[in-house]
Computed example of a mutant assay.
Amino acid sequence: MAVQEHVRVGVGCFVTYRDPNDGKQRFLIGQRKGSHGANTYGLPGGHLDMFEDFETCAQREILEETNLTLDKEKIQFITALNNIMQAEQKHYVTIFMYNQIDYKTIGHVKVMEPEKLQGTWQWVTIEQVKNLNLFSPLQKFIEEQDLSFLD
C-alpha cells in the first residue's frame, strides 16, 4: 500500500430533511465501495478541488453522487476535523457541511456513481446511524461533535 505523501481535504455534507409524517430529521448516507473506507457508511462528498470554496465543493459532489441540486446559499459550514487514518496510511482534513432540503425533493436521489457506492443511498436518523459501521471521519464527527442539528 502506497503511503499518502500529502494531507488531502475532503468535504462531507449532511443532506437532511424533516419527515412530515413523524417529524424526525433524516440525512443521506451510503456504503462506500472501491476506495479507502470500503464497506463503511459515509456522507456524500469528495475531494476539495484547487481554488474551490467549501460550498461549491459540497454542491458539486452532491450533484455528481446523488443527483440532488443544492442551493449554494443554503449550504452551511459545520466544522473541520483532522482525520489521521493510520491503518490506511492516509491523512485528511475533513470539512463537514450541512444543507436541509425540502421533503418533496427526496425522490430525486439516484446513485450516480455505482462504482463508488454499494446499494443505494439511504435516509437515516441519527439513532439509526449510530449502529452502523461508519467511515472513520463520520464516526469521529459523531463521537466528538454537537449533533443537535440532526434532532
Rank of each mutant, 00 (worst) to 15 (best):
M1F: 11
Q4I: 13
H6G: 09
H6F: 10
V11A: 06
G12A: 14
C13I: 15
F14W: 06
T16D: 04
Y17A: 09
D19S: 12
D19H: 05
D19Q: 07
P20S: 07
P20N: 10
N21A: 15
D22N: 14
D22S: 10
G23E: 10
K24Y: 08
R26H: 06
R26A: 10
R26T: 08
F27V: 10
L28R: 14
G30A: 10
G30W: 03
Q31V: 09
G34S: 08
S35I: 14
H36L: 04
Y41M: 12
G46L: 06
H47M: 14
L48H: 14
D49C: 07
D49L: 14
M50W: 13
M50Y: 15
F51I: 05
F51G: 06
E52Q: 15
D53C: 12
F54R: 13
F54T: 12
E55H: 11
E55V: 06
C57Y: 13
E61C: 09
E61F: 06
I62N: 09
E64M: 05
E64T: 04
E65G: 12
E65T: 11
T66R: 02
N67D: 13
N67A: 12
L68M: 11
T69D: 07
L70T: 03
K72R: 15
I75E: 05
Q76W: 00
F77E: 05
I78K: 10
T79F: 00
A80W: 03
A80G: 08
A80N: 07
N82I: 03
N82L: 00
I84D: 07
I84S: 09
I84Y: 05
Q86L: 07
E88M: 04
E88W: 04
Q89A: 11
Q89N: 10
K90C: 08
H91Q: 00
H91R: 06
H91V: 08
Y92H: 15
Y92P: 05
Y92R: 05
V93F: 08
T94H: 00
I95H: 06
I95L: 08
F96E: 03
F96Y: 10
M97P: 07
Y98S: 01
N99L: 00
Q100R: 09
I101L: 01
I101C: 03
D102N: 12
Y103G: 01
Y103S: 03
K104P: 01
T105F: 02
V109S: 02
V109D: 02
K110M: 03
M112G: 00
P114C: 01
K116N: 05
K116I: 00
L117V: 13
Q118F: 11
Q118T: 08
T120N: 10
Q122L: 03
W123I: 06
W123A: 11
T125S: 05
I126S: 01
Q128C: 02
V129Q: 00
K130A: 11
N131H: 08
L134D: 14
F135Q: 14
S136C: 01
P137G: 07
Q139F: 07
Q139W: 00
Q139R: 13
Q139E: 07
K140P: 02
K140H: 13
F141Y: 15
F141Q: 12
E144P: 02
Q145A: 13
Q145R: 09
D146R: 09
D151G: 11
D151S: 15
